Simulated scan of single mutants.
Amino acid sequence: MFKKFLLLLLVVFVVLQLFRPRLDNTAGATGTAGINNHVSVPQHVDQLLKTSCYDCHSNTTTYPWYASLQPVGWWLDDHISEGKKELNFDEYGNYNLRRKYHKLEEIAELVEENEMPLSSYTLVHNDAKLTGDQKKLLVDWTSKAMNDMKAKYPIDSLIRKKQ
């Protein structure tokens, strides 16, 4: 009985491999919409974003080998799609002013509260873990970028008035 159960599990696992998600990696299709063309991003901040954020929040996802194993591939695909929907650094220039400003606020907030990068990501990508100094660097960068936007645009174009 146990052998039949294991055989059934193996058959299910093999059949699942036939149903793979399309890997969502549209590198090179962003043109001038990348964040570097809209916000001043120092090289050391850019490198930090690429190491800790871009796999889920850009069009340049580097998929690990296990992304081709189902159901893990489905989970990764969903996770990456949700991440890009929330913030895509390669599409940042296509956002309206309020959304650009708000995304910078969210970056600082989520980094300060240790919600980003996700622990499930840093578990496998140890180099993506942020040190205290790196967190401060990102928060300071977002603060400067937000202040630059406030100096350039009227505040009511950046922040929705509370009612």
Rank of each mutant, 00 (worst) to 15 (best):
K50I: 11
D148K: 00
D78I: 12
V139H: 06
I155D: 11
Q70D: 06
L110P: 00
G132Y: 07
V124F: 14
L87I: 15
D24N: 14
K85T: 14
R99N: 10
F2P: 00
V11H: 04
K136W: 03
N36Y: 10
T61M: 05
L48G: 10
Q70I: 09
G132C: 06
C53G: 03
N59C: 06
M149D: 04
L118I: 02
K129C: 07
Y54D: 12
N126S: 15
P21I: 03
L118V: 04
R99F: 04
A67E: 02
S40A: 13
H79A: 12
M149G: 03
D127P: 00
W65P: 05
S40Y: 11
S40C: 03
N59K: 08
D133F: 11
S58K: 03
V39G: 00
N36G: 09
L49P: 02
D140P: 05
K85V: 06
K150R: 15
A145E: 01
P154M: 03
V41T: 15
A29P: 00
T131V: 10
R99W: 04
M146V: 04
G31K: 12
F19M: 08
L123N: 13
W74I: 07
R20E: 10
Q134T: 10
T142M: 05
Y63R: 02
P71G: 07
P64H: 05
N25T: 12
T142V: 07
A108E: 07
G34M: 08
S119T: 13
K144G: 04
